[in-house]
Design a protein around this nucleic acid. Structure first.
Lengths: 195, 195
DNA sequence: GCTGTTTACTTAACAGTGTTAACCTTTGTT
DNA sequence: AACAAAGGTTAACACTGTTAAGTAAACAGC
C-alpha cells in the first residue's frame, strides 16, 4: 500500500522536473526502487496512473480556491479573488495544472464518471458563489452551474495560452491576466446598455 | 518534393482518424509507401513534422475566420460572428484544432519565432476589428492586441473544455457556447455601471 | 508442523517507438 | 567517363507500454 503513494509521488516529481515525455513506467519504477511491472499491481495502466495524478492535482487546485472563499465578502471581490487565485495556482504550479487538462481524449475516450463527481465539487464551489450573487440581484444568470463553467472555461483559456507559451512576446503577462480577469467579470455583472 | 506533401497529408489523416498516439513515424511511412527514415529527408524530427501540421491547421483556422469578416458590418455583430466562426471551426474539426494547441512545451521549449509571425497575423485580424471599434468609441481598450489575445484566450478556453470532454454532462453544449460568447462580448462593450 | 493460498514482487518477452549511421541506386552535371 | 547529388534503403540502438509466467515470503486452517 505504501508503494502506491510512492509511485504517485515519484511520478509527479518526474513530471515536474523532467517533463511529461520522460515520465515512463520504467523511469518511475527505477526511482521507486522496483520494476516497471510492479506499477501494474496498483494501477491498471499508465492512463490509470495519470488519472490518479489528475485527481491529486484537482484537489490541490480545489484547496487553493477554497482558501480565498470568505463567506461575508463582497460578491464581485469574491469572484475576482477566486479568478486570481486560480491563475496564481496555475502559473505557480504549471506542470501540476497541466496534468489536469493534459490527458488527450483519444487515449481516454470518456472521462470516468466517478472522477467527474470529484471535479464537480470544485465547479460547485464557484456555482455557489454565483448563486449568492443571483439572490442579491447583482447578476442575471440563467443557471449558476453553466455560469460557473463559463467563467472557469474563460480563465482556463487565459492560463492555457500562457502555459503553452502562445502569448505574444510583446505582451506583458501581468497586464494580460489583469485585463482578462477584468473582462471576464465585467461580462457577468448586470449593466444597463447605454441609451 | 511531392513526398513532403504526401507525408503531411497522411499524418493529418492518421491524426484525425486514429488519434495522436497512433501517429508514429513508421505508420506514416507505411501509409505513404516509404520507410520511416525517408521522413527525415523532409523533416528534422517528429516535432518538426508536428510544427508543419500546426502551421497548416492555423492557416485553415485563419481562413475560416477571414470568411466572416465583412468590412462594413456592425462592430458587435462582427465580433460575435467571428467568435462563433472560431467555435464552429474548432468543434467541426476538433482534431485539427487540437493540433494547434497540442504540442507540449517540454518537447518544444520555444515556439519558433518564424512560426509565431505566421500565427500573429491571425491575431491581428481580430486586433484590426477591435481597433475599428475603438475608433468608433464603441469599446474602451488600452491595446487592441492585448484585447485580441484576451478574447482569443477566452474563446479557446471554451472550446478547449468541450474538446477535452470536461464539460458537465448536464450542461447543453450549445447553451454553453451561446452564453460564453455573450459574456465574452459583454465584457468588452462599454457600459455604464448601474447608478 | 505441514499444507494451501494469498501477497508482493520479479524475469523474460512482445511488439512497438524515435532516431542515427551507413549503404545503395538513380539522376544530373561537368 | 567521372563525380556528385538526390532520394531513397537496411540495420541497429536504446528506449517505450504491457503481458504471461515464475518466485519467494507471509499467513491460514487443520
Amino acid at each position: 500500500m505504501a508503494l502506491r503513494e510512492e509511485i504517485l509521488e515519484v511520478s509527479k516529481d518526474i513530471l515536474i522536473q523532467d517533463g511529461f515525455s520522460k515520465m515512463s513506467m520504467r523511469r518511475i519504477a527505477r526511482r521507486a526502487n522496483v520494476t516497471a511491472t510492479s506499477i501494474y499491481l496498483y494501477f491498471e495502466n499508465k492512463d490509470d496512473l495519470l488519472l490518479a495524478l489528475i485527481e491529486e492535482s484537482i484537489n490541490d487546485l480545489k484547496s487553493a480556491l477554497q482558501e480565498v472563499v470568505v463567506p461575508g465578502k463582497d460578491f464581485i471581490q469574491q469572484l475576482e479573488d477566486m479568478a486570481k487565485a486560480y491563475i496564481r495556482f496555475a502559473l505557480e504550479h504549471p506542470k501540476e495544472y497541466e496534468i489536469i487538462y493534459m490527458v488527450r481524449p483519444e487515449e481516454m475516450p470518456k472521462y470516468p464518471r466517478e472522477k467527474f463527481n470529484e471535479v464537480r465539487s470544485a465547479y460547485e464551489l464557484l456555482a455557489g458563489i454565483i448563486s449568492r450573487g443571483k439572490e442579491q440581484n447583482l447578476i442575471e444568470v440563467d443557471d449558476p452551474l453553466i455560469s460557473a463553467y463559463t467563467i472557469w472555461a474563460q480563465i482556463h483559456g487565459v492560463v492555457s495560452v500562457i502555459i503553452n507559451k502562445r502569448l505574444d512576446t510583446r505582451i506583458q503577462r501581468e497586464k494580460f491576466t489583469e485585463q482578462a480577469v477584468d473582462h471576464i467579470i465585467k461580462g457577468f455583472i448586470i449593466q444597463k446598455t447605454p441609451a
